[in-house]
Design a binder for these strands. Structure first.
Lengths: 240, 240
DNA sequence: GTCAACGGTTTTGTATACAATTTTGATTTT
DNA sequence: AAAATCAAAATTGTATACAAAACCGTTGAC
């Protein structure tokens, strides 16, 4: 009855845990990337045998990857017909960004109310790191610091379910968001908005924090036209 | 004892497109129900061979169902170890309801801004149907009209991605929400709140609509204690 | 007595074989 | 010529076989 208190292999067990089942996951990520860069167009069917050969696996793990892709919305699984890639339409993208904006807004609102001193410290650090990256001028470096900023914001909501859902949607929009940062002066604008969010949270002003986070993510005005032109450009060059 | 696990026979007469791939889906729903009613406790491993025998299927479609359950958060898939059921803790439930409240609030806000006359007509009809069901006094009848009310609210946001995500979370919270309606006077309270939401949307008052929808879903005050006691009661009676 | 190592057993992960369904294309009918 | 028919081919869905890893009780060393 008390044997559960004795864990024989705990020391080595740490490494043993996340070892397998990586196959379907790797395939999933590879296919996600392939879909995004345009190797597969909207409506294309992902052929099981072809991809099995390409990845040197059987159809079984491949189909598992298909299901994961379907759960993330990258493909649509039509029973008896196959997996068809689903590129988000401009309308869908705007809708997704609209939801993302609201989620980040809510995270910021909760963060302003709930964030503790040590979390705030870390958040401020991440914001400063963004600034350092901005000064460096490399969009890719800034991109990763930006990722950390947003991840911390989600955590700071104090609602781990919300944080998880926000991260999920964020990941799905990742490629499009990345394009957004390449425009002239976009990094500076993003940085300013980060500061505004941080200051509002620091001041405990939940309404201001919510508004700032919403404006940061919302695709309106120039951001909207930027997004549209990026989509159009991505469509022009199918296979990078 | 196993009656709930028996799958309905597949009809062969249907020639529509979505005919196959139903197997994993049926299994998924059966397992969802079995998990919710408490046949499996938190942390239990779902044994593949045992369940294969119960459902009279091979491990392949069963594992597909596992993946779908994992995507919905009902189980956690540990590589090399198996599928372990994850009952939401009270904390998680509160978090999920907090997010649900914010999503419905956003739907209502958008609906107040965007809803057209014909949609409004339908929405009003659904609200009236709720009232009729309330007068009938049967919580189950009211439950279904209530479902329609919320589904229409999601659609009315004019953001189909938001509507889809809201419906997904709504479905996940469905069993807990259902328990909420059984308390004394809960139907009347719910109905009043529906009216408030409808009136705010009708008046085009997006702030009022957002607030009303948030209050309707939010678990605070009595609703919070009700939810907690329902959870406790569900834990007492493991297998219904 | 505790801990580590070991081998048999169980369970999961993957490959392959088979069944069922859909697609395709040629042929026939109107 | 367009539509319907139907059988062959291709493709997905499912079952089973096999490989690899995890679990478990035992044994042995310290």
């Amino acid at each position: 009855m008390y044997t559960i208190l004795i864990l024989p292999n705990t020391k080595k067990g740490v490494k043993l845990h996340a070892m397998k089942q990586r196959r379907a996951n790797q395939i999933q990520e590879a296919l996600e990337h392939a879909i995004f860069v345009g190797e597969f167009s909207d409506g294309d069917r992902l052929d099981e045998v072809t991809l099995s050969n390409r990845f040197n696996v059987s159809r079984t793990p491949l189909r598992e990857a298909f299901q994961a892709l379907a759960a993330s919305g990258f493909v649509e699984l039509q029973p008896g017909r196959g997996a068809f890639v689903r590129h988000p339409s401009p309308t869908e993208l705007v809708e997704m960004f609209e939801v993302m904006a609201e989620m980040e807004s809510f995270c910021a609102r909760l963060a302003a109310r709930r964030m503790g001193p040590e979390e705030l410290q870390e958040f401020r650090k991440a914001t400063d790191d963004c600034d350092i990256a901005r000064e460096g001028g490399d969009p890719d470096v800034y991109y990763w610091e930006n990722e950390r900023f947003h991840a911390l914001l989600y955590q700071a909501s104090g609602n781990s379910f919300l944080a998880s859902e926000a991260a999920k949607l964020h990941r799905r929009l990742q490629p499009f968001r990345r394009l957004q940062l390449r425009g002239r002066g976009r990094m500076n604008q993003s940085m300013d908005e980060h500061r505004t969010i941080l200051n509002a949270i620091d001041a405990g002003d939940s309404n201001a924090a919510a508004a700032a986070a919403r404006d940061h993510v919302s695709v309106q005005g120039e951001k909207f036209t930027d997004l549209m032109s990026n989509i159009a450009r991505a469509k022009e060059k199918p296979a990078a």
